Simulated assay, not measured.
Amino acid sequence: MFHLICLVLGIIVSVSGQPHARASDLYYTDITAVTDDTRYTTLNPDITLNEMNKVKHSKGNVVFTSGNRTAGDRLIVNHYDDGSFPSVQDIEVLMSYPAGTSTGVTLTCIEVYVDTSADDAGGYLSKGGIGQTNVEILLTSNVTRSFNYETFIYGY
């Protein structure tokens, strides 16, 4: 419940004209329209995608999680982005922590809140993850006109 409130506040801040919060230690791509030829899995055929836990709340509202909050962990990354398209598109977003050459902390929990005009979305870990000091997250949605997400990464 607490994080759902954070998501709503994040969207309100964005709608009010304030700049999106950007995480300096997170690499992320723009919300990008893809074709079968430009999808992440086509460009990286040897990659193994591990599906994140997924809870659908209503049409287009999905929460992806991996791991759990633990005593002593803290919020490491909070990132929000949104995009819209004039016609339906298949989209992807790729995020990696840590960005560049920095050293990451041990990850305990990842939560990604998605709101899309499509019926569904996908959330996958393609590298690293819980208990490690790095992670790569792939978000996907097909046949969508809008895609909003907020990512919370916790660790110690």
Rank of each mutant, 00 (worst) to 15 (best):
T108C: 06
T108A: 01
Q18E: 11
T108Q: 01
T41V: 15
E136G: 15
R22C: 12
Y80S: 13
A99H: 00
C6H: 08
V62M: 08
I31D: 10
Y80C: 12
S102I: 04
T48F: 13
F2I: 15
D115F: 10
T29K: 00
I31C: 12
V112F: 00
D81S: 14
G17L: 06
S16G: 10
S117W: 00
I110A: 10
A33L: 07
N142D: 08
T101Q: 09
P45W: 00
L94P: 11
T70S: 09
I153A: 05
T103A: 15
V93R: 04
P98T: 05
T32M: 06
Y40K: 00
S16A: 12
V62C: 09
I11W: 06
R22K: 12
G122R: 05
Y27V: 13
V114S: 07
V135M: 03
A21D: 09
G131M: 05
L107Y: 01
R74Y: 03
A99C: 09
G100R: 03
T41Q: 09
L107H: 01
H79I: 06
K127R: 11
V105D: 02
S66F: 01
T144P: 14
G129R: 00
T32L: 05
D73P: 04
L75M: 11
S96W: 02
S141C: 12
S87W: 00
S24M: 09
S126F: 04
T35F: 06
F64H: 03
D82C: 15
V143M: 13
P45D: 03
G104N: 01
V13T: 13
D25W: 03
G67E: 05
T151C: 10
R145I: 15
Q132W: 02
R22V: 14
T65A: 06
S58M: 11
G131A: 08
T116M: 07
S146W: 02
L9R: 05
D90L: 07
S141H: 03
S58I: 10
T41H: 05
P86W: 02
S102K: 09
G131P: 11
P19G: 07
D37S: 15
D25V: 11
P86S: 07
Y154H: 00
G131Q: 02
T42D: 06
E111R: 07
T42A: 14
K59A: 15
Y27H: 11
R145S: 14
V114E: 04
I11H: 07
N142A: 12
V105Q: 05
G131S: 07
V93P: 10
T65Y: 00
R145V: 15
V55F: 04
T151H: 02
F147D: 09
G17E: 03
T106V: 08
G100S: 04
V15W: 01
P19N: 04
I137V: 10
G123F: 01
L7I: 10
I137F: 03
E136H: 06
N53E: 14
Y113H: 15
N50L: 11
Y154V: 00
